[in-house]
Amino acid sequence: MERLFDDRLIAANRRRALAAGNPGADFLLDIAAREIAERLALVERHFDDAVELHGGTGIAARTALATGKIGTMERVEVVRGFAGSDGTVREAAWETVPLEPQSVNLVLSPLALHLTNDTPGMLVQIRRALKPDGLFLAAIPGAGTLAELRDVLLTAEVELYGGASPRVVPFADIRDIGSLMQRAGFTLPVIDEENYPVRYDSIFPLMRDLKAMGMANPLLGRSRRPVGRSFFLRAAELYAERHADPDGRIRATFSFIYVSGWAAHESQQKPLKPGSAKMRLADALDPNRAAKD
């Protein structure tokens, strides 16, 4: 398996985000938390034991608890202090699900699975941790996220240095996520996507927000070559030229893929076995069938 991300750097970025103490930068987690909670509220079930995996500030856990659908909530983080100090946080390595098989009813993953080297393996770990008929809910940044930033950084680097290195992480397509859910053994998967355009005065507050979110570049293939002020000034010019609104403010797109899936249980609906249909498809689609009958 080819590794894309530096696990230690991801943990270090999250520690730095805690030290920076910029509460306004967690607005994307707030959005994901509200959406996950809304989906949870529609489920006619109560979940005795729930876990939030790598939720950063813990807003997704708190918002989900507020639905009244959950008994107890445990949170898992790479850095205990980053997730808070309420005594319900378990520290665990990135890409590790520190749960016993079939031990919880609900797992939440808000904006973390896009940074995993072995996403199929993570999904399998999550599914195994769920009790039969347990539910998995996630928000995953998808393809299209930060497309504008990727565009201008690539162009600026080629112009100034004659080549380019990865500066924005690759994001999965919604179809890829659907396939991975099926491969991991989840049943009744539901997947949809929402785009959130965010406007900034320039590229610089956008990059400050990303750093404050713990989202500085964690790619193993990132360039170690220092870039000067001219690089970022050129990127800012390109951003203003290519991705600005008439009022001069720039746009940054965040595309979130929302995922739900269940651990298998005998009570769940199952597709009919091949050959068990009572009517041929051709007959069902025949507009003259009623007249013939």
Rank of each mutant, 00 (worst) to 15 (best):
R183W: 04
R183S: 14
R183L: 10
R183H: 10
R183K: 13
R183C: 07
R183Q: 15
R183Y: 07
A184C: 03
A184T: 03
A184R: 00
A184K: 01
G185L: 01
G185Q: 03
G185C: 03
G185P: 00
G185D: 07
F186G: 04
F186P: 02
F186V: 02
F186T: 00
T187H: 09
T187F: 03
T187S: 12
L188W: 03
P189M: 06
V190I: 12
V190R: 15
V190M: 11
V190Q: 14
I191V: 15
I191G: 04
I191S: 05
I191C: 05
I191R: 04
I191Q: 03
D192F: 10
D192P: 09
D192K: 05
D192C: 05
D192N: 12
E193V: 14
E193M: 14
E193W: 08
E193K: 13
E193F: 01
E193S: 11
E193R: 15
E194G: 00
E194F: 00
E194H: 09
N195T: 14
N195Q: 14
N195C: 11
Y196Q: 08
Y196F: 10
Y196D: 01
Y196P: 05
Y196V: 09
Y196R: 09
P197M: 05
P197G: 02
P197A: 03
P197Q: 05
V198D: 00
V198G: 04
V198Q: 07
V198C: 04
V198H: 10
V198S: 06
V198R: 10
V198L: 04
R199L: 07
R199V: 07
R199P: 00
R199I: 02
Y200A: 02
Y200M: 01
Y200W: 06
Y200T: 08
Y200D: 03
Y200F: 13
Y200P: 05
D201H: 11
D201I: 04
D201P: 03
D201Q: 11
D201M: 00
S202P: 03
S202Q: 03
S202E: 02
S202M: 00
I203P: 01
I203E: 08
I203A: 14
I203L: 15
I203K: 01
I203R: 04
I203Q: 04
F204L: 12
F204N: 09
F204I: 11
F204R: 13
P205R: 06
P205N: 09
P205H: 10
P205L: 00
P205D: 02
P205W: 08
P205S: 09
L206A: 10
L206H: 10
L206Q: 09
L206P: 09
L206R: 05
M207S: 13
M207P: 11
M207C: 12
M207Q: 14
M207W: 06
M207A: 14
M207I: 14
M207G: 11
R208F: 06
R208H: 12
R208M: 07
D209W: 12
D209T: 15
D209Y: 13
L210P: 13
L210F: 02
L210G: 10
K211P: 10
A212D: 15
A212L: 04
A212F: 07
A212T: 11
